[in-house]
Simulated assay, not measured.
Amino acid sequence: MARFTVQVADDAAERSQGLMFIEQMPTLEGMLFVYERPQRVAFWMRNTLIPLDMIFVEPDGVISKIHKEAVPLDETGIPGGDNVQYVLEINGGLSDRLGISVGDILQHPFIGPGAAKPCAN
């Protein structure tokens, strides 16, 4: 189990800004992107200065894909899948160091009553 302190990006402007121009991020911090409904998502690293692991999560909190060590400033699209409602960005390489894998469960109050595992806060 790993616990992160996250900034939540739950509107278009916040999701568009993301972690751009951040020069460093404490180890157990990140950003949680929240979408109104499940959808196809793709990310890129425009103006993002630090390597990131992108954890793509389905509506019930189950991790469906992890893109590891996204390259700073790279504008190549990083597809997350078709049924994504949440994306957690953490420092690059951290998902491996913490043993975070596809099939694991993300808990957060935003996931709500349909969560695979309810959040205890």
Rank of each mutant, 00 (worst) to 15 (best):
residue 41 V to M: 11
residue 92 G to K: 00
residue 89 E to C: 01
residue 118 P to G: 08
residue 5 T to S: 14
residue 41 V to Q: 07
residue 44 W to V: 04
residue 10 D to L: 01
residue 72 P to H: 08
residue 83 N to F: 04
residue 60 D to Q: 07
residue 118 P to H: 12
residue 2 A to I: 10
residue 65 K to E: 12
residue 38 P to D: 13
residue 95 S to L: 04
residue 85 Q to C: 04
residue 95 S to C: 06
residue 99 G to R: 02
residue 27 T to A: 15
residue 95 S to D: 12
residue 14 E to S: 12
residue 50 I to Y: 04
residue 48 T to I: 03
residue 2 A to K: 10
residue 31 M to G: 02
residue 108 H to E: 03
residue 112 G to R: 08
residue 102 V to F: 03
residue 54 M to F: 07
residue 25 M to P: 04
residue 15 R to I: 11
residue 3 R to A: 02
residue 104 D to A: 14
residue 97 R to K: 13
residue 102 V to H: 00
residue 118 P to V: 10
residue 93 G to F: 05
residue 34 V to K: 11
residue 7 Q to R: 07
residue 6 V to E: 03
residue 52 L to I: 02
residue 76 T to D: 15
residue 33 F to L: 06
residue 110 F to M: 04
residue 5 T to F: 09
residue 24 Q to Y: 13
residue 15 R to E: 04
residue 57 V to S: 06
residue 89 E to Q: 11
residue 44 W to M: 10
residue 96 D to F: 00
residue 90 I to M: 02
residue 85 Q to N: 05
residue 19 L to M: 03
residue 35 Y to Q: 07
residue 121 N to Q: 09
residue 15 R to N: 12
residue 14 E to T: 09
residue 117 K to C: 12
residue 26 P to D: 10
residue 80 G to V: 00
residue 49 L to S: 05
residue 55 I to D: 02
residue 32 L to W: 04
residue 37 R to C: 08
residue 113 P to N: 07
residue 68 K to S: 15
residue 119 C to D: 15
residue 110 F to Y: 12
residue 77 G to A: 15
residue 21 F to S: 13
residue 82 D to R: 08
residue 23 E to M: 15
residue 61 G to Y: 03
residue 104 D to K: 03
residue 118 P to S: 10
residue 79 P to T: 11
residue 119 C to G: 12
residue 76 T to C: 14
residue 83 N to D: 12
residue 16 S to N: 14
residue 76 T to M: 14
residue 118 P to W: 12
residue 82 D to C: 06
residue 28 L to A: 13
residue 45 M to I: 07
residue 35 Y to G: 00
residue 43 F to L: 10
residue 107 Q to T: 02
residue 117 K to H: 13
residue 5 T to N: 15
residue 82 D to G: 11
residue 64 S to E: 03
residue 95 S to H: 02
residue 15 R to G: 08
residue 16 S to C: 15
residue 36 E to V: 08
residue 15 R to C: 13
residue 116 A to R: 12
residue 24 Q to G: 13
residue 101 S to W: 04
residue 85 Q to L: 01
residue 81 G to A: 11
residue 86 Y to S: 02
residue 35 Y to A: 03
residue 2 A to Y: 02
residue 69 E to K: 14
residue 106 L to E: 04
residue 73 L to K: 10
residue 45 M to E: 03
residue 73 L to I: 02
residue 13 A to Q: 15
residue 92 G to I: 00
residue 53 D to W: 01
residue 115 A to V: 06
residue 45 M to N: 05
residue 24 Q to K: 14
residue 63 I to G: 00
residue 120 A to P: 13
residue 38 P to K: 08
residue 116 A to F: 04
residue 62 V to C: 14
residue 58 E to L: 08
residue 113 P to F: 09
residue 81 G to W: 07
residue 56 F to L: 03
residue 113 P to D: 08
residue 88 L to C: 04
residue 46 R to D: 13
residue 4 F to R: 11
residue 76 T to N: 14
residue 119 C to E: 11
residue 80 G to K: 00
residue 64 S to I: 04
residue 38 P to E: 14
residue 54 M to G: 02
residue 89 E to M: 08
residue 33 F to D: 04
residue 57 V to K: 07
residue 71 V to L: 12
residue 15 R to P: 06
residue 77 G to P: 13
residue 107 Q to D: 00
residue 79 P to A: 09
residue 56 F to H: 02
residue 107 Q to G: 01
residue 47 N to K: 09
residue 30 G to I: 03
residue 53 D to K: 05
residue 88 L to D: 06
residue 71 V to N: 06
residue 91 N to A: 05
residue 115 A to T: 01
